[in-house]
Design a binder for these strands. Structure first.
Lengths: 208, 208
DNA sequence: AATTTCACCGATAGTACTATCGGTGAAATT
DNA sequence: AATTTCACCGATAGTACTATCGGTGAAATT
């Protein structure tokens, strides 16, 4: 109950965090069209004009959201790798799908915002969204390589990339379907993703 | 070279078509944020105020775009079915992927607009995008059922839906990747999609 | 031929938002 | 204790856009 006396910079940082949180919530609920400095500031409990104490302009806020999101995503990718190493080989492939799905369910607004930005040529977040998608694809491809699906020639390398991209797209789609309540059982979702992935990987095995 | 004399209603319809075309192009290039009555009217060669002769307001334009897109999509789905029936059983599954990919490559702006709208809670096209996605999923699921992958119990029906949704997501992702130049060979894309799909369908076969 | 309709126009009122500016008081520094 | 800094405020100029309105001339109707 005691108000810890904050220094000025601590208080400012706190306000900044509130602004970023508010912006993410508004972006998720109302989209980029609904993201105004007035709404963000109001939701964070400050005057509209004070927004500009924290960000140069709206672009600057969106850039910060990108950094923010990137930080979370990188953390989550590291987590995937860590947990993947801990699980037995048999489970490993399956668990590699569980972790991103859980991450999506924890912060679905991030995926939704990224998906939108990726296809919106006017979005200041677009470049970031495209880069993130590429990072995930490469990450997944590297994971598969670790599982023994090495690609020696150009052809197989591209196949591996396609499989990674396709399976990622399916993972995102099914995770959102799970959140929407259409696929209530995560285990069933994992069954399908593992089956999709294994089917495609057989392509590489037969080629090797 | 002879200017066919158009009746008033013919000229009006022509202007309306130009507005819709212009709107689609702007939506694709600049996103919903860039879609203003001034830009659309200018691109169609009329005054901004004349926009309101053709549409009640901006919402009305977007609704019309939805109808327009829906019409194209339904035509393309009928085409898939028709061509699928014509091909031999062995090719059938593979060709079922070629047709949507070609459709996407012909009008990539439609897919991009729909993908964006699907994840944008403020978009007037959102409901339409969600319905379209569901229609495609069901369409694909029905296709698979026609190929002999019948689902008797609740469990398998849901699996079939998940496979359809996952494979659709992968198809869209790879089609856009192809358009972006990352996967130049459509046949390689088809290889991967067929492999993904077959892998997942083995789940159903083993269950039956 | 006279009259009506209507697709189009330019001008403009109204709205929503961005970003700036001068001011204030409490925190930080001297 | 005196001075400086700065996170915040309210007011407001500027911008971009939506939607309306009265007017016009050619097409359509009488």
């Amino acid at each position: 109950m005691t108000h810890t006396p904050l220094t000025r910079s601590e208080a400012k940082e706190l306000t900044r965090r509130r602004l970023i949180r508010a912006a993410l919530a508004i972006l998720d609920k109302e989209g980029e069209a609904g993201l105004t400095t007035l709404k963000v500031a109001k939701a964070a409990g400050i005057a509209q004009s004070t927004f500009y104490v924290h960000f140069k302009d709206k672009q600057d806020l969106l850039r910060s959201l990108g950094d923010e999101g990137g930080e979370r995503l990188r953390r989550s990718m590291r987590e995937v790798r860590r947990q993947a190493r801990e699980s037995h080989d048999a489970e490993r492939h399956r668990e590699a799908f569980r972790i991103p799905i859980e991450a999506i369910c924890r912060h679905p607004e991030l995926l939704r915002i990224l998906q939108r930005a990726r296809h919106d040529p006017a979005s200041p977040l677009r470049e970031f969204a495209v880069e993130t998608a590429a990072a995930y694809r490469d990450h997944h491809a590297a994971d598969l390589a670790e599982l023994g699906y090495t690609a020696d020639d150009e052809h197989d390398r591209r196949r591996l990339e396609m499989i990674a991209e396709g399976v990622n797209a399916a993972t995102n789609a099914l995770a959102l379907g799970h959140l929407e309540g259409r696929y209530p059982d995560v285990e069933e979702v994992l069954d399908v993703l593992v089956a999709l992935s294994n089917g495609a990987l057989r392509l590489l095995k037969s080629g090797a």
